[in-house]
Computed example of a mutant assay.
Amino acid sequence: MSVSPSSLPLSAIVTRLRAAGCVFAEDEAELITSTARTPAETAAMVDRRVSGFPLEHVLGWAEFCGLRISVAPGVFVPRRRTEFLVRQAAALVRPRAVVVDLCCGSGALGAALAEARDQVEVHASDIDPAAAECARRNLAAAGGRVYEGDLYEPLPATLRGRVDVLLANVPYVPTGEIELLPSEARLHEARVALDGGADGLDVLRRVSAAAPLWLAPGGCLLFETSERQAGQAMEVVGRDGLLPRLAASEELNATVVIAAKAAPPV
């Protein structure tokens, strides 16, 4: 049942959110009331959150690496653990580096990397039109270019052999485990952003196979995976001629593979 806009004191919002199972009801109530522009909008946002929509989709933004990243219904919400991937990439970026963000979703990774390092040339692609539109908004300030299409397919051919940092936050949930995901992800994010195929590595295999064609000598492919998939993921990129190493964060429960294209001998 909707609540009249005139009867939505903060305490009432907290009570409704808590009854709906929101663990951080007080924090969520404050975020909703500070984001909503009118009482009616507050009421609508509370109704959507109580109905099970992700908080970020209700607000229209997600916090990531200290930035407010625009997200729309159905678009993958950037996870806090993925901040570790951005930190690993930032350590590799040099001025005027060419960065490509595949499976970019909202464009959060490219936007965060551009914020962390000046003078980078950012390109991003996603097969989902709604995600690509979000990415355009989020990368506008950095002058990033966003392309709609499948992985490398929409990228300009002029980028081949020039990419210094290739970010690919590929879906890596095995198809059989999709139903085990929290309902906020399973019901409200595009399946194409979650489903990694039978073993969770199908999209990675496609990214890895073409990565040597796009990476500059010494350039790196970086992607997130689960701890149990890491060994197999490293074998995948190794077979494609890249030199992988593993980075992990116990604090963020994050596992990242960094796979370099060998530089030619001097």
Rank of each mutant, 00 (worst) to 15 (best):
A116L: 15
R117D: 13
R117K: 08
R117M: 08
D118T: 12
Q119F: 14
V120H: 11
E121W: 15
H123V: 10
S125C: 13
D126N: 04
I127V: 15
I127C: 09
I127T: 05
D128E: 10
P129W: 05
P129M: 09
P129T: 02
A130I: 14
A131S: 15
A132Q: 01
A132C: 06
E133C: 12
A135F: 06
R136G: 11
R136A: 11
N138E: 10
L139Q: 10
A140M: 14
A141H: 12
A142Q: 15
G143Y: 09
G144V: 11
V146R: 00
V146C: 05
E148M: 06
G149M: 04
D150L: 14
D150C: 12
L151P: 03
Y152F: 11
L155T: 01
L155E: 06
P156I: 09
A157I: 13
A157E: 15
T158Y: 08
L159K: 05
L159R: 04
R162I: 12
R162M: 09
R162E: 11
V163L: 10
V163E: 14
D164V: 10
D164N: 11
V165E: 14
V165F: 10
V165S: 13
V165I: 15
L166R: 00
L167S: 00
N169P: 05
N169S: 08
V170K: 02
V170Y: 07
Y172K: 04
V173Q: 04
P174Y: 04
T175A: 06
T175C: 02
T175D: 03
T175Q: 11
G176K: 05
G176N: 04
G176P: 04
E177M: 07
I178G: 07
I178V: 14
L180E: 15
L181R: 00
P182N: 06
S183L: 14
E184C: 03
A185N: 03
L187G: 10
L187S: 12
L187R: 10
L187Q: 10
H188K: 04
H188Q: 06
E189D: 14
E189C: 07
A190D: 06
R191W: 12
V192I: 08
A193S: 11
L194C: 04
D195C: 06
G197F: 00
G197K: 03
A198L: 09
A198N: 11
D199W: 13
D199S: 01
D199G: 11
G200W: 01
D202E: 14
D202N: 03
V203E: 01
V203F: 02
R205A: 07
V207A: 00
S208E: 05
S208H: 06
A210K: 10
A211K: 00
A211C: 04
P212M: 04
W214K: 02
L215S: 08
A216P: 12
A216G: 11
A216F: 09
P217D: 15
G218W: 15
G219H: 09
C220K: 08
C220A: 15
L221A: 09
L221S: 03
L222S: 05
L222C: 02
L222P: 01
F223D: 09
E224W: 02
E224Q: 01
S226D: 08
E227G: 00
R228N: 12
Q229A: 02
Q229C: 05
A230D: 01
G231S: 10
Q232H: 05
Q232S: 14
Q232D: 05
A233P: 01
V237F: 00
R239G: 08
